[in-house]
């Protein structure tokens, strides 16, 4: 598999390590009401789709960026990649 790194172009997946579903970016608030339930969901439960999956890859033998890669789990086709930092900042409304 070749991952289209947003900064470095196509790079071999072997340079990366895998973490899992990109929902791991959305860490719940540990102080909020119902935090235990929210954390159970966050840590343990997965959509695990057969098809398009957004997932976190770390460019370990590369520029050490975390990427959100969109990939089809049935065909292994890679549909795109973004810097996880950009995705996380966009989710926070662009705030630093």
């Amino acid at each position: 598999m070749l991952i289209p790194h947003p900064l470095l172009g196509l790079r071999d997946a072997q340079e990366f390590t895998y973490l899992g579903d990109a929902s791991l970016l959305n860490r719940p608030d540990g102080m909020a009401e119902g935090a235990a339930e929210a954390f159970y969901d966050y840590v343990y439960l997965r959509d695990n789709p057969a098809g398009v999956h957004r997932e976190l890859w770390f460019h370990e033998q590369g520029d050490r960026s975390w990427l959100v890669v969109t990939r089809n789990t049935v065909t292994h086709e890679i549909l795109g990649a973004e810097l996880a930092r950009d995705v996380a900042l966009a989710a926070k409304g662009g705030a630093q």
Partner: peptide
Amino acid sequence: GSSGRVMAKAGMRLPIES
């Protein structure tokens, strides 16, 4: 192997990745 996609039909999310 397919537990995730079968149980999704029953509306369940599992502590499993395939």
